[in-house]
Design a protein around this nucleic acid. Sequence first.
DNA 1: TCGCCGTCTGGGAACGCTCCCAGTTGCATT
DNA 2: AATGCAACTGGGAGCGTTCCCAGACGGCGA
Lengths: 340, 340
Amino acid sequence: MTARRAASARATINDVAAVAGVSRGTVSRVLNAEAYVSEAARSAVIDAISKVGYVRNNAARNLATRQSHAVGLVVHEPHSLFLEDPNIGSILLGINSALSDADYQLVSLVIDSDRDSHRVAEYLSGGFVDGVIIVSARAHDPIAKVVAELGIAAAFVGHPVDIEGIPYVGIDNFSAAKAITTRLKETGRRRIGMIAAGLDRDSGQDRMAGFRAALGDSFDAELVITTPLYAHASGVDGMRLLLDRAPDVDGVFAASDAMAAGVIDVLREAGRSVPGDVGVVGFDDSAWATRAQPPLSTVHQPAGQLGRRAAESVLAQLRGETVDTDGTFLETAIVWRDSA
Amino acid sequence: MTARRAASARATINDVAAVAGVSRGTVSRVLNAEAYVSEAARSAVIDAISKVGYVRNNAARNLATRQSHAVGLVVHEPHSLFLEDPNIGSILLGINSALSDADYQLVSLVIDSDRDSHRVAEYLSGGFVDGVIIVSARAHDPIAKVVAELGIAAAFVGHPVDIEGIPYVGIDNFSAAKAITTRLKETGRRRIGMIAAGLDRDSGQDRMAGFRAALGDSFDAELVITTPLYAHASGVDGMRLLLDRAPDVDGVFAASDAMAAGVIDVLREAGRSVPGDVGVVGFDDSAWATRAQPPLSTVHQPAGQLGRRAAESVLAQLRGETVDTDGTFLETAIVWRDSA
DNA sequence: TCGCCGTCTGGGAACGCTCCCAGTTGCATT
DNA sequence: AATGCAACTGGGAGCGTTCCCAGACGGCGA
């Protein structure tokens, strides 16, 4: 097959103007819903548009307005995130939905970790996007710094970073972790441990702090196992270690559902029943939670809303509105199932 | 914070021309790597570009060339796909990598199932994208039909559809299913069942046909359980039913790794050991495979390559090359772990 | 010497919009 | 009747490229 170009003779704004018997300017005003257009002119234009099958040429508009009407989604370390993060899909859908409502296009800027952030910086400064949403940046992130310097409209999804002046949309990891740990404690558990992860990010630190706060005096640092990743394997390794250190453990807070699933696997292997002998709670309310045996009690993250709100913040900045740089925290909810 | 516009005074091709002491046309020729530029002019232009910090304005180029230099990725039913399909992430990365190598931009066209395909058709015909990649279309897909009518450069990922003239990149589900079933049979299993899914797509049908072909005379329709989704829960339900029907089953081919994980859960619950009492094999080689206890023997799908090849097909069409409409099948490989 | 051709260059003319200014109405107010 | 103002309209200018044509230059064969 040879590629055919799409029908070459596309109608332009001039064709519409000619058919409607008005000028180019009036058509443009109708298209952009501006004031000062008579009802007669408006309906004539609308009729003409459907008659000639007019579709706006974005390239021309972008050139004239010096805006791209596109917002970039910067995702770091694509493989780990795209393939393992249970929330990224929902976040993406939330962003996409908010942007398309506002007639903006989402372009995905996947960053290969082996390339320099220079390439991204150039892309961002190249006017290809009007704004940018950054998912899950680490502290001291080079791209975050570039965005801050460029002064481009931006928002972070996930958690605050060490950069001033850029809003973020996240959840209150501290309170959520504290709440579910408290709830676990209320089921009568006395020796509660935690499998922590992602301590290089605020989210991970906050979950651990929340856990500690919930336990108060009964907190025992011995019962906190630190692992690098939020993965199933980390839960397995962490739980083995914990069981070794404290065979009398009767409650576990895992920093993610994937880890909690690993924890349950290890407990079963060791002949402990869940929730009979040990209560287990997770974090995320991802697909892991319902597929686990037994289904996990966990913290529900409003991932879709996280994306939507971040996109709305960028759009507001693009409209020239003042947005809150302190960021916003979305509500989490405890989902109590059978694992504790 | 008030949004600041990115540095307003961006260098244009004219600035470069002025600094290099050549004309606009020469700069353009250098930028597009055209012939007939003297070495002196070329290096002067290159120096000038870096001196003034020139970055190409895509809107202007798109307007002048009447091309968008963008390729759309159409994803249906975003929720089920994005959130459950273990391959979609890799496919996306593969596409993105091929496109950015060729200086094309990926724009994601997520289709909300409740809206009409009309909106997508308009988008596609609106010149916003030069080509389109469609992931996992069903038979009789309306958007696939629209693409075919438009004659826009396109490729399908996943499996052939009922549309003529559009290439696809997929795997040979029949052969792969046959191969892994045969391998399972060779481990000495006599009563082999299958948990099938996705029979509304060719991929699902082919996997079942491959299973049947591998068993030959020993095929027993009683041992095939049909479920709607490739999900963990389908594996659980399907295996319960199968165990009920045939308590002597000693081998199971699940149509996806997620289902295979569900199968294993049910077997454990029923006191059967894997692979001791029952051998289980899956399909996909997704994250489910390695996290399962025991790790799954399964069929490896080259998801990233699937995306890359589809993108390359679209790019070839865009260059006006003739591409094979029959599509291409990529090699799968059996990954033998511990579950069988 | 002349003419030709291949190599290289400059710049006018689009591409299809938006912006903005200069008008032209029609109506209320003086 | 004259004035002012709000409501509306037309069209020139410009956004930053690419495309393409006209032309300059130099080397080479006749």
